[in-house]
Design a protein around this nucleic acid. Structure first.
Lengths: 146, 146
DNA sequence: ATTTACTCTATCGGGTAAGTAGACTAATGT
DNA sequence: ACATTAGTCTACTTACCCGATAGAGTAAAT
């Protein structure tokens, strides 16, 4: 299950990617536009900033903006940051491997093998999808009215 | 995250598939062999029986056995049964679709699109893997000493 | 100096996962 | 018949974490 935090984070990042990249967007505006509880979004954006994905500007005319090119912000990083490893089970994780105590021999464990396949499949999707590529995929289905 | 229930269920099913299919296996034996808390396993096996994946026999010489051919028991069914839909987000689920309230237009939602890809990828793995095929995959890597 | 808006810590309620306990029921063997 | 074996069922406990909110604090801009 994707947490609300991760979900809101992606929505917010996409919105920021869409907005003209130079002017900061206020938390309150973003919250209203994306239907996210403002105080909750606050927390999320702060996290994204600490990860280096966002910049902030304080005071009047302040707000948040992307710290990098949308083509170089991948969903994998965002999801891992809020929800932890992609693997359904710690022993199948690439980034946070952990042996499971109740497993005599990992090499012969069916759960391990199957879950490794699942993790690889989802990693392929999420680490292969950037804000920019996601945007263009959406536009391909429903063209923007320019 | 895969729940312990689902994980234990898969392990138990695999063990049952390996055991000579005609003699029932006792909960206690299965629990010891797979390092699962016996009372907890009890619950899990009961669930699997109610789903029609297992049969049981009471009294002396009793226990559990598979109700179907291992080639026709798919991980997807087991995981869904204990952990719910495979999709990371309800609006991306095939088997339990649910619109999300905070989404103005699903067709233009990046989260929806990306998560649908994730769900398809994991469904491809889990609905394509049976106990039998999983067993043979494991054996292919570490041949059994016959 | 004042306003604006981000920063940080603490807290709360509710839900759920993991595991345990114990009484009950059904089948088997002698 | 009856004791034994083993699955069935309900209820409970414990612990943890998610989603959300509150409020005081800090930094920047005009």
């Amino acid at each position: 299950m994707l947490s609300k935090k991760a979900k809101y984070a992606i929505k917010a990042l996409l919105a920021l990617a869409d907005s003209n990249g130079d002017e900061p967007v206020r938390i309150a505006d973003l919250a209203r536009a994306e239907q996210i509880p403002p105080k909750f979004l606050e927390l999320i954006l702060l996290g994204l900033k600490n990860q280096g994905l966002l910049q902030s500007r304080k005071g009047k005319g302040g707000g948040y903006l992307l710290a990098r090119d949308p083509a170089e912000i991948y969903l994998g990083q965002v999801v891992r940051m809020f929800d932890g490893p992609l693997a359904p089970v710690p022993c199948a994780s690439q980034t946070a491997y952990q042996r499971c105590s109740d497993c005599k021999n990992e090499a012969v464990c069916g759960v391990h093998l199957a879950m490794k396949e699942v993790r690889d499949a989802t990693a392929r999707v999420l680490d292969g999808t950037s804000l920019a590529s996601l945007r263009s995929k959406v536009d391909q289905i429903v063209p923007p009215n320019t």
